[in-house]
Design a protein around this nucleic acid. Sequence first.
DNA 1: TCTCATGTAATTCTATATGTTACGAATAGG
DNA 2: CCTATTCGTAACATATAGAATTACATGAGA
Lengths: 124, 124
Amino acid sequence: MTSEALGQCLGAHPVVVRRTMGLLREAGLVSAERGHNGGWRIAADLETVSLRQLHIVLGEPALFAVGHRNEAPECLVEQAVNAALEGTFAEAEALLMARFADVTLADLARDFARRHAERRTRQE
Amino acid sequence: MTSEALGQCLGAHPVVVRRTMGLLREAGLVSAERGHNGGWRIAADLETVSLRQLHIVLGEPALFAVGHRNEAPECLVEQAVNAALEGTFAEAEALLMARFADVTLADLARDFARRHAERRTRQE
DNA sequence: TCTCATGTAATTCTATATGTTACGAATAGG
DNA sequence: CCTATTCGTAACATATAGAATTACATGAGA
C-alpha cells in the first residue's frame, strides 16, 4: 500500500504517513519499497505484535492528559498532589499496558474481517 | 488571596487565575470579594471536597492523551481498535475516578503542613 | 530515461491554551 | 465623595505542538 493510499484511509498527509511508518520500519514491523509497485508491506507476524509493542515503537507517547506537570516541583502544594496521585497513575498505566499487551494485530484483523463481512451482508 | 498573588504562586497570569477560579466560584467552593482587601476565600469544608469533585467542577477535561479520536468512526479498522480498548479505558477511568474521590483537600492540606514543617526543620 | 515511490529536511499552517490589554463594576479607606 | 484596589469579562495577541506542505534527493522498474 502506498503512503498516498494510506493517507487517504487515515485522512492524513502522505508525508505524515511516511514519518510514522518510518518508526514501524525501523522496528522491523513493516518494509518499504520504492519505485513502481512500491509501497508499504507488513513484515511481522500479526499474532506476535501487540498494541503495547506498537506503543513502545511509536515512542511511548504520554498516556494521560492530566497529572504530573513537573516531576520535582518546588511548590509544596504541587508536591502534595503529586504524592497523593503518583501511585494511582502508576496503577492505571500498568492496567492499560497489560491490556495493550493482550491485543494483537491478528485479533484486530479477525474483528475487522467480521465487521467487513457483516457490512457486506447488510448491504445485500 | 488575590488573583495577583495566586498567579505568582502558580506561575500564571492573574486573568487566567480568575478564569479558572471563576469555575470554582460558580460551584460554591470559593468566594471572591472585590475592592480593598478583596480576593479569593475558601467557601467549602476541606474534608468534603475531593479531587474528583474538582475535576467535575473544572469541566471534566479529558483524562487520556491516547485512544478514541472519533466516537463513531466510519473506518472499520478504527472501529475494531475502539472495540478492543473501550472496556480498558472505561476501567482505567473508573480506577482514576475512584482514587480522585478518595483524596480530599483536607488530606492535601495535612500533607502540605507536614512538608512545610519538615522544610522549616531542615533550614534551621 | 522517465515515472513512480520512499526518505527527509525545511517551512508553513492550524488549533488550543495561555498571556495580555482594556474597561466595567463593586468595595473600602481617606 | 473620590480614589485605589480588586474581581468580571470580553477582545485580542502570543506561544506551542502537531500536522500539512513544499522541496529535493534516492532508488526501482517499465
